[in-house]
């Protein structure tokens, strides 16, 4: 029996987020009055209480704020087999604290550490849903950026 719980991609507060995940882009609501980005999506801005917002792309880079390694399947299950790593990822954003909860994709638990740099990996689950997982920032990418002649 499959006990994975998938999001409702038509939920009015979250639909835009899931649509953009299919394009491999992470977005959050941004307040049209005070300009604060917020997560999780809320109908009003907690800072200025404005109901007006739009969606904005955020940095596709974050750091591990905390994590747990789940060894025994509980309800709900992950689409990953046990043991799997779940982490809170703090997005590299200059002003607003934005943390996303996600799974670490194909990441050995023993290499995970506080503040580890991670990037999203978009995993299609079916035709309409893509889940954003995370993985350590690939070393070769970093080297490629730092020393293009390599």
């Amino acid at each position: 029996m499959n006990r994975t719980i998938l999001p409702d991609i038509n939920h009015p507060d979250f639909a835009f987020f899931w649509t953009k995940c299919r394009d491999e882009v992470l977005t959050v609501p941004i307040c049209q009055q005070c300009g604060r980005k917020r997560w999780p999506p809320r109908p009003i801005c907690s800072a200025c209480h404005s109901p007006d917002y739009t969606w904005i792309e955020i940095a596709s880079r974050g750091r591990i704020y905390s994590w747990t390694v789940t060894h025994r399947n509980m309800v709900p299950h992950s689409i990953q087999p046990t043991p799997y790593v779940i982490a809170v990822v703090e997005i590299d954003e200059p002003r607003d604290t934005l943390r996303l909860l996600g799974g670490l994709w194909e990441t050995p638990p023993e290499i995970v550490h506080l503040n580890m740099l991670v990037e999203p990996v978009f995993v299609p689950v079916n035709d309409v849903l893509t889940l954003p997982f995370w993985r350590p920032v690939q070393r070769r990418h970093v080297i490629a950026c730092e020393s293009p002649v390599r």
Binding site: P76, H77, L101
Partner: peptide
């Protein structure tokens, strides 16, 4: 709604797991 839409899909949905995460951060800090 946050648990159901954003957290349970990744297999994070019980108090034990939430508090395990809080514990881990305390251990690291």
């Amino acid at each position: 709604q946050f648990r159901r839409q954003l957290e349970e899909p990744f297999g994070w949905g019980t108090p034990l797991q939430w508090y395990a995460m809080m514990c881990r951060r305390h251990m690291e800090l």
